[in-house]
Amino acid sequence: MTLPGQDGESRCGYVAIVGRPNVGKSTLLNHLLRQKLSITSRKPQTTRHNVLGIKTEGAVQILFVDTPGLHQNQSKAINRYMNRAATTAIHDVDVIVFVVDRIAWTDEDEMVAGRLADVKCPVILALNKVDQIDEKNVLLPHIQTLAARLPAAEIVPISALRNDNLDVLERLITERLPLGEHFFPQDQITDRSSRFMAAELVREKITRQLGAELPYQMTVEIEEFKQEGATLHIGALVLVERDSQKRILIGDKGARIKKIGQAARLDMETLFQCKVMLKLWVKVKTGWSDDEWALRSLGYDG
């Protein structure tokens, strides 16, 4: 059997990875690309922006769009921004991968399913983290329940973290891509800037190391990004909303911010393939996460 793309016909299309927070969307993107692009943590709402990941193999170019988790809490401007970003992606793609977590089905999953009810493009439901299901006999009845909820969707059990069944998922995606020329060069992996990627890496390390200690009223802005010889100099400003958050982030005698900087620098050197000198500053900017103008100035502009 000839698979799509193997017949020499060029295929290219956008694929939105959607779902509620913390179901493994960014981990799925990274493993499909076979390299780290989206930041990850165990904390919900780690992803705040749509991130494009480009995978080109032969005649097939898949443009994955990792989206923020769709959630019901829209009390702040940043929450509304994330929901707008994800909703926009749903209506601008050729294929949708709806990621759900094992045998759980929440009100937010139901909300996502409702938003997909009227889409015109194919929907693939990726049942993630199946390796963590202890009682395998509950899997088939759950798949049947999901099939009743989304009768038009193709359902595929996967484990993004363990790469289980991702080849099947990718084949299903490729079969649904439209014929067409590639939009990006073969060696390009994203349309995001290096400054954006640097800011995201710093934010990932903060989220991972602080967890519940620091609320999500934190963002990162790159103020310096300059190559000098073989060394890339990066200066990052971390914005928080209260003095108490600043103290937590800096830590005793600066120990915590130093540890965050060291971890981020190592990832940056891997990403940018050069020596990196990273400097971090922390500043209080009260109310930035609920200020539409401040969000736009910080790059939350859709």
Results as ranks from 00 to 15, higher is better:
R242E: 03
G229I: 14
A160P: 00
E224M: 14
P151T: 08
N165V: 04
F196L: 04
D291N: 15
A264F: 05
T231R: 03
V100M: 02
A230W: 02
I62Y: 13
P185D: 05
R265D: 07
R203A: 08
G211E: 01
V60D: 10
R247H: 04
T88E: 15
L179Q: 06
V282A: 06
K25C: 10
G299H: 13
D94G: 06
H233Q: 10
G261E: 08
T87L: 13
L210D: 11
I248Y: 00
W105V: 02
L3F: 03
D7N: 05
K246Q: 07
T46P: 03
E223K: 12
W105Q: 01
D167P: 01
I189V: 10
I124P: 00
G229V: 15
Y14M: 00
V156Y: 12
T2N: 13
N165S: 14
V282N: 02
G302R: 09
L139F: 12
R80K: 13
L37V: 00
R149T: 11
Q35L: 06
G229K: 04
R192S: 10
T207Y: 04
R34C: 06
D243C: 11
H182A: 10
L237T: 02
S159N: 12
T67S: 12
T231K: 06
T286W: 11
N165G: 14
V138A: 13
P185H: 07
L172A: 12
F272T: 01
A59P: 14
V60M: 05
P68K: 07
L271F: 13
Q74K: 11
R195P: 09
Y300G: 02
Q186T: 15
G235Y: 00
K55N: 02
K285I: 13
G302V: 12
M111F: 07
T231D: 02
K285C: 03
K25W: 09
P178K: 11
Q262A: 12
A117K: 08
V240A: 02
R247A: 06
H91Y: 13
M197Q: 01
D107E: 15
E170Q: 07
R176A: 11
E292I: 13
I206D: 01
K136H: 07
I90C: 07
M1D: 05
I173N: 07
Q74S: 10
P185R: 04
L179H: 10
E154W: 00
R203T: 12
E154K: 00
T40F: 09
V130E: 05
I173D: 14
E135W: 14
F98Q: 03
K226W: 11
G69W: 02
L125N: 10
R192K: 00
